[in-house]
Simulated assay, not measured.
Amino acid sequence: MSRLKMLLIAATASLCAGIAPGLAQEVTLRVHHFLPAPAPVPKNFITPWAEKVMKESDGRIKVEVYPAMQLGGKPPALFDQARDGVVDIVWTLPGYTPGRFPGTEAFELPFMPAKAEPTSQAFWDFYEKYLTDEFKDVHPIAVHVHGPGLLHVKGEGVSKLEDMKGLKLRGPTRQTNALLGALGATSVGMPVPAMPEALSKGVIDGTVVPWEVTTPLKVAELVDSHTDFEGPRGLYTAAFLFAMNKAKYDSLPDDLKAVIDANSGREMSKWVGRVMDEGDQPGIAAAEKAGNTIRKLPPEEVARWQAAAQPVIDAWIAEVTEKGYDGAAMVEDAKAMIAKYADGN
């Protein structure tokens, strides 16, 4: 081999060595979720999170956000889209695939949640203790819940337990649907984007959702009454997951992994929980502007609902215990973890 050829090869190798690492460290992450972009979590968590990651990576991570299932599929497919690498990151509800993530349902049991911010911090602790195996096929960035859910119903609505009888109500998850049945209603499961049309067409009489989501979906225009519950714990909540494709995370160089790590965990869960809580206020204001009836059931009535709901908790404990979980311990731990953040205990 001539000396000139050897020099050319060496120069080419040197050039490649100089540019390859830079090229390898440029990455685009596509985030996919199910709500319109103006909804509180997309607007006030997902987009700011993306901007934070891009800034802290000096632009070497680019994040593209696709709301309202723009990349295809239905909301229940989101977890598998992240698992399979169809997209890089998703925001979804594990409960959209009933029974697949039984451990998460501890936080969805009746009268479990406090406000979303403390309950979401507790949910991250619970994930680290109990749910790492359930979510082993993805790389969780945050887990959280929404604020305490309540009833939004056409007509006179619900002022006592007996008013639930015969109502067709949309529920988001398996445990919430079980709760609605235990309270005397007929539960109709569907992802939240389908709910406004079902209300407008009379397929359902009402829905259970937090105040936060009523604003983007204009629920106050579709119902006449809203029923909440007095006391430190709400009727129900739903568990959410913000997670990344595992292989995509593993492929990142260490310094970019560090950026993702710095924007993952309990603090991110707390952040999105706070967004959920803050998102409740516009929903309440919209209901007031519409002239709807807003009521809170008093403690003595809430106690009747809690008694009616207890069989749902007992059934879940029995079911997951048969699957190898310690269901009773999980319920007690969930309560204690929530109390730690919500009550300062």
Rank of each mutant, 00 (worst) to 15 (best):
S200H: 09
L256P: 02
Q281F: 13
L179G: 09
A122K: 00
Y249L: 05
D326I: 00
A194P: 09
K5V: 11
G103K: 07
V312H: 07
S264G: 08
R174E: 15
G171D: 00
Q70L: 13
A334L: 10
A262H: 03
K340L: 13
W305Y: 15
V65N: 08
E267I: 10
L169D: 01
E128W: 03
H144Y: 13
S159L: 00
A198W: 12
E288A: 11
L23A: 14
V145P: 02
M164R: 03
W271Y: 14
V143Q: 06
P110S: 08
I317S: 11
Y66T: 12
L217M: 12
Q81Y: 14
D333P: 11
M195A: 15
T104Y: 09
A142D: 05
T92Y: 14
D205P: 09
F107W: 11
R266H: 14
P193R: 04
A247K: 15
K201C: 00
H33K: 15
S159Y: 01
Y96F: 09
A303P: 04
A13E: 01
M164H: 03
A185I: 04
K218P: 09
R274P: 06
H152L: 11
E322I: 05
K74E: 00
P38V: 13
E26Q: 12
G189K: 15
F45M: 05
H33S: 07
F123Y: 15
H146C: 08
A198K: 01
V312D: 04
D137T: 13
N345M: 00
E56N: 03
A329T: 01
L23C: 11
E212F: 00
G184S: 11
I317N: 02
K115I: 01
L252H: 11
P102I: 02
G73E: 10
A315C: 00
A68P: 08
T132V: 00
L256N: 10
I19D: 09
Q81P: 01
V259L: 07
W49S: 02
M69Q: 06
G149S: 12
L131H: 04
L222P: 01
A182M: 02
E56K: 07
D333N: 11
P298S: 04
F79P: 08
P48V: 08
Q310M: 15
E212C: 07
L35P: 00
L167C: 10
I204A: 01
D163H: 10
T176R: 03
L199W: 02
A13T: 09
S251Q: 07
L4D: 14
I338S: 06
A258Q: 08
